[in-house]
Design a protein around this nucleic acid. Structure first.
Lengths: 202, 202
DNA sequence: ATCCGATTATTCCGCATGGAATATTTCGCG
DNA sequence: CGCGAAATATTCCATGCGGAATAATCGGAT
């Protein structure tokens, strides 16, 4: 079950809805900070959930002359599956192949000072993300709600902090020479004087 | 450019190869810990890189009577693009929607003790992951190489540590009551003798 | 009153990914 | 020396997701 499926099921667990209403609700609650949600995917997801018997269509109303909208409700099976999925995800950490480690593992192809600059820019960006998180929290009035309801933010902040510290440490270590950056052959670095040779004869 | 495309380009930046050789090399270097790599996707990826003019086929040899293998080399443009992509990823942090936050944001649907148990199991799993990382490092003899070449491991470890501390803190806070887990209506919890649905009580 | 644009609600298409299928060849084992 | 298993090298197909297209209606400015 994909993240979006989890969110969709969770919504139907509150009350029956039609897909577009789920979309609105997710956006309004700013859950799109945590799940990737696009209208198209949502419909697809709900369809799949129906095939799996985790939700069922209760009926199709039409208001005015707008397109028909199909309302879905969660099934007993769906309720079960949701809880099991949540439990499964929490219980067993799974690596999800973020890009940053890939890039950092190849940073040795770039020259020292370039890397230092890039890392410092990242630091700045992280700072502003951090403050956005805080601002968003307050804007949503989440700070009034018990912590139970924003554990995810709490978690993400701790991850953010760790990355922040790591970046600062690495930058310092490169600067100080503690982390040696033996300049070998590099890949071309952006901004290098490149003899632009473009061959596209296919 | 997807992570796999980055890895492929990086390999071709070392020397020309045919896709299967890239596959072998990635596996042998255990880069599949960091990039998701499946033979199928690799061929597809290389094709796309060719269309984009970032790599070019140098020729097709055949050894014995095995299927023909097409060797590729990186182009000037490819070299440039690789460096730019690496720089771009490092420079600008991008959220990649991991599942754990989604699950944790819905954990309030599960009963207190269940959650505590799940979090504790996760802690254990993380422990063993951690030791595996260390073991893998030593097995590959990476510890001899300068730190420059295993910055990714370094980073991942710091992330791991942060999560570890977060989990311990949260578990402690739930246990102590510091983090209140007001037991409201729950979704069915796995292993519960669930009877009817939870529709009407708010 | 009317026209423009945003909102409502959904469908459709393309593309990247993963898994399986294919076909040949070498290797291990008795 | 011969049989099956693993390795070599690649293609093919089902699937899920994101972005764009569609189509009707509502709100707001002139």
């Amino acid at each position: 079950m994909t993240p979006l499926a989890m969110s969709a099921l969770a919504l139907l667990n509150e009350r029956p809805m039609h897909p577009y209403e789920m979309y609105q609700t997710l956006i309004q609650r700013s859950e799109d900070r945590i799940v990737k949600v696009r209208p198209g995917s949502l419909y697809h997801t709900v369809n799949k959930l129906e095939e799996l018997g985790l939700v069922r269509a209760t009926g199709t109303e039409r208001e005015g002359n707008r397109p028909e909208r199909t309302t879905y409700e969660i099934t007993e099976k769906g309720n079960l599956a949701l809880a099991e999925r949540i439990a499964g995800v929490i219980e067993a950490p799974e690596y999800e192949f973020p890009v940053f480690p890939v890039a950092i593992s190849q940073a040795h192809n770039l020259p020292r000072e370039t890397v230092v600059n890039l890392l410092e820019r990242r630091l700045q960006q992280l700072e502003s993300r951090r403050s956005e998180i805080g601002a968003g929290l307050r804007k949503l009035g989440l700070t009034d709600l018990p912590r139970k309801y924003w554990l995810d933010v709490d978690y993400l902040r701790s991850q953010y902090d760790a990355e922040h510290r790591w970046l600062e440490r690495v930058v310092a270590d490169i600067r100080s020479g503690e982390l040696d950056w033996g300049e070998a052959k590099h890949a071309a670095h952006p901004g290098a004087t490149s003899t632009s040779e473009t061959k596209d004869d296919e």
